[in-house]
Design a protein around this nucleic acid. Sequence first.
DNA 1: TTCAGCCTTCGTCAATGGCGAAGGCTATCT
DNA 2: AGATAGCCTTCGCCATTGACGAAGGCTGAA
Lengths: 296, 296
Amino acid sequence: MRFDLVDLQLFIAVADQRSITRGAERSHLALASASARIKGLEDALGVALLKRGRRGVELTAAGESLLDHSRLVIHQVDAMRGDLAGFASGVRASVHFLANTSGLSEHLPKALAGFLHEHRDVAVDIEERESTDIAAAITAGAADLGFAAEHALPDHIERFVFSEDRLTLVTSRRGPFAGRRQIDFQEAGGCDFVGLTSATALQLHISKHAARLGMRPHYRARLRDFDAICQMVAADVGVALVPESAARRCAKLMPLAMVRLRDSWANRRLVICARSFKTLPRPAKMLVEHLRAAAM
Amino acid sequence: MRFDLVDLQLFIAVADQRSITRGAERSHLALASASARIKGLEDALGVALLKRGRRGVELTAAGESLLDHSRLVIHQVDAMRGDLAGFASGVRASVHFLANTSGLSEHLPKALAGFLHEHRDVAVDIEERESTDIAAAITAGAADLGFAAEHALPDHIERFVFSEDRLTLVTSRRGPFAGRRQIDFQEAGGCDFVGLTSATALQLHISKHAARLGMRPHYRARLRDFDAICQMVAADVGVALVPESAARRCAKLMPLAMVRLRDSWANRRLVICARSFKTLPRPAKMLVEHLRAAAM
DNA sequence: TTCAGCCTTCGTCAATGGCGAAGGCTATCT
DNA sequence: AGATAGCCTTCGCCATTGACGAAGGCTGAA
């Protein structure tokens, strides 16, 4: 007692045409074959689906119900074909990912490379955004995942710690703390500073804590990325707070000194975040699992 | 390039068991047949669905997607089978209908009899409810259709006028308006009344308009149905406002006089109502069409 | 190197689903 | 009343399909 998708498609054609003859044509079947299929469908379901007449057929109440269901089933199958066609053609599932500057340049590339290597049928679209903008975009559903500083995130956004970013004071080689390995940030109160443009989450973070310490740092320049900042510092324009990973990378190329801060707020927690980990599409879930495994 | 429902069910079994061998068993197929079907499915969709291994299989990303789709399709097909099984067993589609007392006893029976005669595969379950209760039930989705007084319905409930119910003052044959064909309701201000229990929509309607006229009718008795009310009236306990159709019917059996009211509010519009006519199940839609045709 | 576990391939054969042709039913026309 | 047209059902035939058992192939573990 069975039927198949061809039966359902034929039934839809017969119902649309109100004729087994024309429905058979529409389905590229001989009339006899179509008639037998419809009869088989009625046998399988145990109910008459059509009223046969001289001028074609009409649906019974059961036939009307079957027509509704058939349309749903065929629509679902078409959606399935479409989805699987995406896999077949290599236009595969993708994850939309937003990362702040630290994430993009320092923390993620290695982890993402590993993931993409293991999952050749998933693409990751990464865009650079500020941490606060990442929070807004994720809340709005405009991205699957984000990499951001935890302090920039509102409470409703789910997250787990991926890494920590220790802020480091960079100075020129002959700078004011030459020979010192670590200081309290307050000791830098009298220095000129080079900083990020004020809209960034990192810069806001620094400003907030400086204010708490009663400091009013004087910014000689504000720039957009760590390399440019470090070049200014190496040229003795001022000192700067940058992520340790960026400082190390720049120190290889420029005459810089790195001085650790004892302040606890100088350790930023960087997190992978989502509106809800549970409801992510499957490719994003796979990426999350990978990143959890790669976290510190 | 095709697949069928057996393929999808087999795929679900294979995915659940993580084994073609055990999936074949679950689907009552030989291993070779199952293997060939899965291979055919992969050919049809143009993408690998499984990673084969020594300890069974794992789903690819495409396979995971197909699994999700397959579950939806099979669920839809099961729903279809269930629905059609209802037709096959004669437990056919039914319409859940709520009607007020007037509707149930005076207005609907003839129209519904006609419908049921024409549609032997539909059942109509009618329950008696007050008009205000009908509104609540329909809003809550607890019934498909209602027959109620329009004034008792909130605005969001869709309706069309089925009939009008003219309220009539009934008195004893030798009553206070003997010989009068029609009066203003206010002229009955000095009479004793017999009425419905105060919770009914009709009684609330009457009370509201009496209050507007500055009347304070004195109720000697409150009863539940028109026959009982008319018996009291015939026994000269008081006068009563009842629907004209009920008054006519009772006047045949009891010494009653009927006096028309000139007041416009004495003409109640009785409507067929639904939360949304457009989204009704098909059997209810058929009943609505029939009632539209039978409306005044 | 052997073995166990699992999947794939091969050959066989019964069942299926397609077709053309002919028959049957019903309403309409002459 | 008989003929006709329109549409659906049945029959017989035949190529294709889908089931099976048996054997082969691959891979990781012992």
